[in-house]
């Protein structure tokens, strides 16, 4: 089973500092990591490879330095990675990003499955995974908590996956014909750590770097210009709500604090209806 895992490099912490004047992120001095939710995708892919053979290849779109994310994935056990990077890709929204990555995946060749993280912790949209499925016309399952291969070794038309999606009402069970795309949640698998051998291999690995000239791309679909959505304004909301804080260090104070809390909740119409006079 040959698997492709699209990943993203994100700022190390979500505790990002904002420039109060410009309203933009201060990127300087902030380390980068593989999007933590992509680690679940990598792990799920590696386990499928271990069970059914094949390969796991990652792909990322970002600045030149995003190569580091691909090397981290190789250190975990992935077989290789492709970096798509070009100034022409800067400022891409999710529509454009899913287009650009889809065209890279077409160039990467035959595959059976794409496994992606549910969303990235910086952009936080969860739109690129489903977008890639739409561009490549692949059967799609999102929020996947469990993956099982049915008939992995049959003729290609008979191969399928059974997945469980964690949705509001429970675990929805879907069967998808392969090739397909799934986005996964934490429950799918606990990610492994890179091994020493993996790290050595990752240092030596050749990472192909593709720019806009290396892929079959419609120029009007690229970067900031090609993006249907435009950011109008960025604001930093106040973090603190400046609420009431009461100290309750003995029984009487607890009783008093709870009394005040109930009053506060009643004022906001948040008490159970039966609790109202």
């Amino acid at each position: 089973m040959d698997i492709i895992v699209p990943i993203k490099q994100v700022p190390e912490t979500s505790n990002v500092r904002m420039d109060p004047k410009t309203g933009t992120m201060i990127r300087a001095g902030v380390g980068t990591v593989v999007n933590p939710l992509d680690l679940y995708a990598i792990e799920a892919a590696l386990r499928l490879k271990e069970a059914h053979g094949g390969s796991v290849t990652t792909v990322t779109m970002g600045p030149r330095s995003a190569e580091k994310a691909l090397r981290e994935a190789i250190a975990m056990g992935c077989d290789g990675g492709v970096l798509i990077t070009d100034r022409a890709f800067a400022g891409s929204d999710t529509w454009v990003t899913s287009y650009t990555i889809s065209q890279a995946i077409k160039k990467m060749g035959r595959f059976d499955l794409i496994v992606a993280g549910e969303r990235a912790t910086d952009g936080d949209t969860g739109q690129v995974g489903p977008g890639i499925a739409a561009w490549l016309d692949l059967p799609l399952a999102t929020y996947v908590a469990k993956v099982e291969v049915l008939r992995a070794d049959g003729a290609s038309s008979e191969r399928a996956l059974r997945v469980e999606r964690l949705v509001e009402e429970g675990y929805q069970v879907l069967e998808l014909a392969l090739p397909a795309l799934v986005t996964v949640v934490k429950e799918v698998a606990a990610p492994r750590l890179p091994t020493l051998r993996g790290k050595k291999r990752s240092k030596a690995a050749e990472i192909p770097v593709w720019g806009s000239q290396d892929m079959d791309l419609e120029v009007s679909f690229l970067g900031l210009k090609g993006s249907p959505t435009k950011v109008v304004k960025v604001a930093t909301p106040k973090v603190t709500r400046g609420g009431t804080i009461l100290v309750a260090d003995d029984e009487e104070a607890v009783s008093d604090a709870v009394e005040q809390l109930l009053g506060f909740l009643a004022e906001r119409d948040l008490l159970p209806r039966r609790g109202r006079a």
Binding site: D93, S98, Q127, P130
Partner: peptide
């Protein structure tokens, strides 16, 4: 929701819309 966040990006790609 799990439905809206799956369906909308899929449709947005197909109808060339911003989402």
């Amino acid at each position: 929701t799990s439905t809206g966040r799956t369906l909308m990006p899929h449709v947005a790609v197909r109808v060339h819309a911003g989402l």
